[in-house]
Simulated scan of single mutants.
Amino acid sequence: MGSVKSKDMSTTQIQQGKKFTLEEVVEFIDLIAEKLNSAIDKVDDVNHKTHVLSVNASIEAARAGTYGRPFGIVATNMSELSEETSKITDNMRKDTKEIINVGNMIKTQSKEFRGNRLTDLALVNIDLIDRNLYERTADVRWWATDSNVIDALTKKNQDACDVASKRLGVILQAYTVYYDLVIADVSGNIVSNGNPEKFPSRGLNVSDSRWFVSAMNTKNSGQFGFESVHRSSLVSNNLCLIYSAAVRENGDPKGQIIGVLGVIFKWESLAQTVIVHTPISEDEKKNTRICIVDDSGLILADSDGKMLRDSLDFDQKTSLLSEKKNHIFIEYCGLNCCIAHALSPGFEGYSTGWHSIIIQKLGTAKKAKLVK
C-alpha cells in the first residue's frame, strides 16, 4: 500500500478500465491528495521566492529614486501576484482537505460494508449447516422405530441382525450423506451395521462413546444423542458427526431402552462444501480464511483444511463470540484483518451452538502468514 510500484499499477489499472473495490478507490483518492499537496507545496515555495524577490526589488527601486520607479512598478505587480497566488494555494489546500475528508468517509463506509457483508456470509454458512443437521436429528429418531432395528435388539440372533443390516443398507443407498448406520445393544456392543463390507464394525464396543451414552440418557423418543466432529474408528477414522437415538421396546416413545441406533454423518461433505461455495471472488479467497469453530475456538471446518488440528485465538475473541452477529478490525497473525462472526441461529428448535468465522486480510502489518 502506498509504494511507488502500487501507485503506478493503480494508474495503469484505471487506464485499462479495471473494476476497483472501495478500499482501492480510497487508496487512489489518497494518492491524488498526496500529489496535490506536493504540487501546492512547490507552488508555495516558488511563490515565497517571488515574494522575497519583489521585496528586494522594491528596496532597490527606492534607493535608485526616479531611475528606479519602473522597477518599483514591477515589484508592486510581483507582490500583488504573490498575494493572489497565496489565496489560490490556500483554496487549493482547502479543496484537498475536502477530498481527504471524502476519502476518509468512504474508508469508514467501506470498512463497515466489508464487515457487514462478511458477517452476513458467515451467518448464511452456519444457517445452512444448522438446517442440514436438523434433518439428521429427524432421521435418527425415525429410523430408531424401524421394526427391523427393534427385531435385531429383541431377537438377538444372527438372522435378525442380518435382516437389519440389509434394511440399513437400503437406507444408506437413499441417504448418501452417511458413512454408516450402526445398532448397539444396551452394553454398547454393535450387533449390526448397514455397510459391513466397507466398515466391519459388528462386535465392537462403543459404550464409552458420547453418542451412545447421550442416547442412553434420553427420556423419550423425541430426544436424541450426539457426538461432535471427530475421527471415528467405526468409519476408518474419517471426520464425522454421530447422531443417535435410543431404540425402545415395541417402538413405544417412552418404552424401555433396548439399544441405540447411531447414524454416522459425512461431516466434510457438508461443511467443506459450504465453505468452498461461500460466494466471494477468487481474488478475495486468496486473502480469506473461512471456518466453523466451537465455543473454545477449535476448528471444525476450515478453508485451510486444519480441522481439529488448529484453534482460533485472537484479541477480543471472547467478546466477539459472545454476540450473535458482529465483526471487528484487528491485527491477527501480523496482518490487518476483518474478522466476521455469526453464532448458530438454530432451526426448528435445533442449534449446533457453533460459530461461523470469516477472516479477511486487509493489508500486511508485517510479513506473516494469515494462518496460525
Results as ranks from 00 to 15, higher is better:
residue 273 T to F: 12
residue 9 M to F: 07
residue 292 I to Q: 01
residue 182 V to H: 03
residue 46 V to P: 08
residue 206 V to D: 01
residue 260 V to F: 02
residue 266 K to D: 11
residue 170 V to L: 07
residue 125 N to F: 04
residue 176 T to R: 13
residue 338 C to Q: 04
residue 298 L to C: 04
residue 129 I to A: 06
residue 24 E to M: 03
residue 149 V to Q: 00
residue 258 I to N: 00
residue 309 R to G: 14
residue 133 L to N: 03
residue 178 Y to V: 11
residue 130 D to R: 05
residue 197 E to S: 11
residue 190 I to Q: 01
residue 342 A to E: 00
residue 313 D to R: 09
residue 20 F to E: 05
residue 92 M to S: 12
residue 24 E to V: 00
residue 123 L to K: 11
residue 297 G to F: 05
residue 354 W to N: 13
residue 362 L to G: 00
residue 90 D to W: 07
residue 183 I to K: 05
residue 257 I to P: 00
residue 74 V to E: 13
residue 174 A to G: 10
residue 119 T to Y: 07
residue 320 L to P: 01
residue 149 V to E: 02
residue 336 N to M: 11
residue 6 S to M: 09
residue 145 T to Q: 14
residue 164 A to M: 01
residue 20 F to D: 03
residue 45 D to M: 09
residue 75 A to W: 08
residue 317 K to M: 12
residue 287 N to L: 08
residue 291 C to M: 14
residue 143 W to A: 08
residue 139 D to G: 03
residue 8 D to P: 00
residue 189 N to Q: 13
residue 177 V to W: 06
residue 27 E to N: 15
residue 342 A to H: 01
residue 261 L to K: 02
residue 67 Y to Q: 13
residue 23 E to M: 12
residue 214 S to Y: 04
residue 371 V to A: 15
residue 67 Y to M: 09
residue 251 G to Q: 03
residue 289 R to F: 05
residue 161 C to Q: 13
residue 77 N to G: 15
residue 320 L to S: 02
residue 164 A to Y: 02
residue 223 Q to H: 05
residue 339 I to P: 02
residue 347 F to N: 11
residue 138 A to S: 10
residue 135 E to G: 08
residue 329 F to A: 08
residue 43 V to Q: 07
residue 6 S to E: 14
residue 308 L to D: 00
residue 73 I to N: 06
residue 224 F to L: 01
residue 93 R to W: 03
residue 308 L to G: 06
residue 234 L to E: 02
residue 118 L to G: 00
residue 307 M to A: 15
residue 87 K to V: 14
